Simulated scan of single mutants.
Amino acid sequence: MSDAGADRTNFCYRHPDRQSYILCQRCGRTICPECQTQAPVGVICPECMREQRATAPRTKPAAWTRVRSAAGRGAPVVTYSLIGITALVYLLQWIPGLGVTNALFFSPVFMTEVLPEPWRAITSVFLHSTSLFVHIILNMYTLWIFGRLLEPMLGRVRFLALYLISGLAGSVGVVVFAAPTTQVLGASGAIFGLMGAFVVIQRRLGGNMTQLYILLAINLAIGFIPGANISWQAHLGGLIGGALVGLILLETRSRSRRGLQIGLLIGLTVVLFVIGTVVARWKIGAF
């Protein structure tokens, strides 16, 4: 039984029992993941897709066009791409002499004037420990699970923004809560950000939160195990950052607020870099 008091504009016009926060870029109606077809910008509904095909020139699609069409039917290509890039970087980490790990890992000192390389706050997300193979396996498995849930719901560009901003927030968490000489790598901060965003979205959708809270609590608690060599600071920072991104995406989902959405996401990114820089400099006495 559906909630009679719910806002019906948040339900798919073709499947009234399915709640969604994605709008067709042409007609503006709400559509669920099953009804979405990827467009150059955003997604479009089946009716608008039929109209577009009816007016398009009749040509035989090339192989690449067919691949793009298959991806447009809902495959989480950003999730798969992130997993593929991370796996490639992991293989490169094993090649002697390349120095991939040394070039991309993060430490708070890189947010200061001593060694100004702030981009490492994001590049470190694509690194993993070569001495602990389970590190990358668990992270990529979790990315696969939450990516398949969130990417169709948010859209590819928004999902990518969520992942990268969460990774940045995880690095800022290390700056704020860890020693300035701490060195970190891994996708855990970004993945905790996906969890944080999913919590925010599930609460809005009215889903059962018990199992999700238990999963989140267990994963956070693991970071506090003595000798585990896990950065709970990155987990906490990523979780907070992801929740904020999820909230922004929910509150600015309508087409009329797209500019506000982009502005808020850029503003959050700038604020995170500023916090990381100010706190890192304060901790090492650069002020």
Score class of each variant (00 low, 15 high):
residue 162 L to H: 07
residue 202 Q to M: 12
residue 64 W to H: 04
residue 264 L to P: 05
residue 34 E to L: 14
residue 253 R to I: 10
residue 244 L to K: 06
residue 39 A to F: 13
residue 136 I to T: 08
residue 167 G to D: 02
residue 241 G to E: 01
residue 263 G to R: 04
residue 228 A to T: 08
residue 88 L to H: 05
residue 98 L to P: 10
residue 65 T to Y: 02
residue 210 T to M: 13
residue 68 R to I: 08
residue 146 F to S: 01
residue 274 V to Y: 05
residue 230 I to G: 08
residue 158 R to W: 14
residue 238 G to E: 00
residue 235 H to I: 11
residue 177 F to A: 10
residue 189 G to P: 00
residue 119 W to Y: 14
residue 182 T to Q: 15
residue 274 V to T: 08
residue 88 L to D: 09
residue 7 D to Y: 00
residue 14 R to A: 13
residue 265 L to Y: 10
residue 130 T to R: 00
residue 25 Q to R: 15
residue 265 L to W: 09
residue 135 H to D: 15
residue 7 D to N: 07
residue 11 F to Q: 00
residue 236 L to C: 06
residue 231 S to T: 03
residue 115 L to D: 07
residue 287 F to L: 06
residue 137 I to C: 05
residue 92 L to S: 07
residue 39 A to T: 02
residue 249 L to Y: 01
residue 124 S to Q: 14
residue 270 V to F: 09
residue 114 V to D: 08
residue 237 G to S: 11
residue 17 D to M: 13
residue 75 A to M: 12
residue 229 N to R: 14
residue 61 P to N: 01
residue 32 C to R: 04
residue 69 S to M: 05
residue 272 L to H: 03
residue 82 L to R: 06
residue 98 L to Q: 09
residue 48 C to G: 07
residue 13 Y to R: 05
residue 93 Q to V: 00
residue 166 S to Q: 06
residue 173 G to Q: 08
residue 64 W to E: 08
residue 172 V to I: 08
residue 105 F to H: 15
residue 220 L to Y: 03
